[in-house]
Design a protein around this nucleic acid. Structure first.
Lengths: 142, 142
DNA sequence: TATTTAAAGGGTAAAATTATCCTAAATTTA
DNA sequence: TAAATTTAGGATAATTTTACCCTTTAAATA
């Protein structure tokens, strides 16, 4: 579904969001430990997310990553920054010229699935998801 | 969404199905040409699909691939043979232990999307899709 | 039955993705 | 202001996926 990089990116961002909600600013090694992702690879992903303003970063002692708890940023911002829009805009058979007017045989079958995925990503906020991490209702590791 | 191998596999199988409907038995080079896929790579994919009884193959002169027009084989058979079931059974965040009872933060958001995808793959027949290729209503190349 | 045709299968190569390492730049704080 | 900490960024390595090549096996037919 998503690339490994995107999975790590979502997990890391949700962890950061939850920590930001409780006034913390985790650094890379804490994040990678918390979401069980390779640290150096996660660093690259975080760079991309920071450049795309999905998260904010701060260098130096007591630095780390955070995301304003009042931010309304949606899941789709993470996915677009890492995997692009192919997952919900691309053709299921990988055909570049596939469209409503010139469809592949699977086009109609995919319309509602891709639409539902896109809507979900567009409507789901990072902080809403992060809230679920409170009191171990949901988890991010393993 | 699907791997390249799976995209090629679906395109090739739909082409074979359509050709079988009109009494033809295309060979590898014809198939690869028709669906614009690399021939040798497509050969590997077809081996897998033949072993999984998604298509039948015949060696020798006038040999090639075909799929009985009365077959009720569904799209899911192709996807499972090539990509496995991760796409509709796996966790959106790549967490092995994610389940209804022990969900990741995205679990609920994904339930209906994965369900719809799985149902579509389970209910859509290869020959039904292949029928759409008649009179260029849909296409498989480029 | 010999020849030809085409899939099966093994091995290798190229490309993309995932993962790691090291240095530079920025920022805090002692 | 110097030292320590932490992200940014460049370079490289490992792994996986995609792609290709060549030989073997099976089948048709001349």
């Amino acid at each position: 579904m998503f690339s490994k990089a995107c999975e790590y990116g979502i997990r890391a961002t949700l962890y950061i969001a939850r920590q930001s909600q409780i006034g913390m600013r985790p650094n890379l090694s804490e994040i990678a430990g918390a979401v069980n992702s390779p640290e150096a690879f996660t660093a690259k992903i975080m760079q991309k997310l920071a450049k795309n303003n999905v998260v904010e970063s701060r260098k130096g002692p007591s630095g780390g990553f955070f995301i304003d708890p009042s931010s309304k940023t949606k899941l789709i911002a993470i996915v677009e920054a890492i995997d692009g829009d192919v997952i919900y805009n691309g053709c299921g058979l990988g055909l570049a010229e596939c469209s409503e007017a010139h469809p592949c045989p699977l086009h109609d079958e995919f319309v509602s699935i891709r639409g539902e995925l896109k809507e979900m990503l567009k409507n789901t906020t990072i902080h809403g998801l992060a809230g679920k991490l409170e009191s171990e209702h949901t988890f991010l590791k393993f």
